[in-house]
């Protein structure tokens, strides 16, 4: 990857590269923009969880083309952003990179591994050095990010050069948990979401990382809307924030899983969005946001087969 990036920089095709660099901890990976001077510090490995495509939005005002590396999940977000004209394809050179699932350091911690100093991959094994001795995780699949366990598959949906191989990391039916929530009684479901969402500290990490949340200014940040708030006047507002956000990204959410990855309180936000995806699939037929550039999603499209909103309710979601 570094070599290819260097070639493209040298030929002048691009003038900068969006990729990952190592952070302060040995296992930290941070999105970074490189030029020819520092492209050697680019890293790509099993720890590169953060997706990059949303950073392109901020790069669009700059001169020249930028090279971006896209994991399979990120390629959907890329298409969705292009569909919404938030990125200009003339200014980007995408290269797809292979992915075998990214490691969630929090899951290592949840296994009781404390004081982690470094994480090294050895095939399917992970060697973890800590302040309190070394640990081995036999199968890296045990500690992959949740988003990787619900991966849309190893194919990239952007047509471009591909570097490296991908592996399918999908585990079981990704709508399984949604179905479980649907099967709860309204009171149980309410209690579940109240419990989860009440932990929210309203840091907005989920919104800011979300490639579907690409509004230049969010209504909740704009004092002129009258609904702006940083923290809620009562704790139910936080809960509403998430429900409103989920509605706003419905049909555009690609299920990239970044919202849940970044949440400092480990709130399973993706389940809200996935419920919408499941409903859209059932009511309007299967649909995957970001599968191709220029798609119109079912909520902004009309075809004669669509059922009336009132009917949706009555039919309980069966498409006729």
């Amino acid at each position: 990857m570094i070599e290819r990036a260097r070639e493209l920089l040298a030929s002048g095709e691009v003038n900068r590269v969006l990729a990952w660099e190592k952070g302060e901890n040995d296992f930290d990976r941070t999105p970074a923009v490189f030029t020819a001077d520092n492209v050697d510090s680019l890293v790509y490995d099993g720890l590169c969880g953060p997706n990059l495509s949303k950073y392109l939005v901020g790069e669009m005002e700059k001169e020249g083309k930028i090279l971006v590396f896209l994991k399979p999940c990120d390629s959907y977000s890329y298409n969705q952003l292009a569909t919404e004209h938030r990125i200009d394809l003339e200014k980007v050179v995408p290269i797809a990179v292979g992915c075998r699932g990214k490691i969630d350091v929090e899951k290592l911690r949840a296994k009781g591994i404390k004081g982690i100093l470094s994480v090294t991959e050895d095939g399917d094994k992970l060697l973890v050095k800590t302040l309190y001795g070394d640990a081995v995780v036999e199968n890296r699949k045990e500690v992959l990010l949740d988003k990787c366990l619900a991966c849309k598959g190893k194919e990239h949906v952007v047509e471009c050069e591909v570097i490296g191989e991908s592996e399918d990391t999908t585990e079981g039916d990704k709508f399984g948990i949604v179905a479980k929530l649907e099967a709860m009684t309204p009171d149980e479901r309410f209690a579940f979401w109240r419990g989860e969402l009440s932990k929210c500290i309203r840091c907005n990490a989920c919104r800011n990382v979300c490639p579907a949340c690409s509004c230049v200014k969010c209504v909740f940040d704009n004092p002129n809307t009258g609904v702006a708030n940083k923290a809620a006047a009562d704790d139910f507002e936080e809960n509403m924030f998430h429900i409103i956000r989920a509605f706003h990204v419905a049909g555009r959410c690609t299920d990239c899983g970044e919202c849940s990855r970044v949440c400092p309180q480990h709130i399973p936000l993706h389940l809200l969005n996935r419920k919408f995806i499941k409903d859209i699939n059932e009511i309007y037929g299967g649909y995957q946001a970001g599968a191709e550039i220029g798609q119109r999603h079912p909520l902004e499209n009309f075809d004669k087969g669509d059922c009336e909103p009132s009917v949706v309710h009555v039919r309980g979601g069966a498409r006729k």
Binding site: A32, I201, V209, V262
Partner: peptide, 28 residues
């Protein structure tokens, strides 16, 4: 420039921090 490049502007760091002290006063 380099240090802040990837910052999402989220505020997680300020809200989990024991010494961050800034607040806003609002009317509901």
């Amino acid at each position: 420039e380099r240090l802040s490049k990837a910052c999402l502007g989220c505020g997680t760091c300020t809200f989990v921090c024991p010494t961050c002290q800034c607040y806003d006063i609002r009317d509901f």
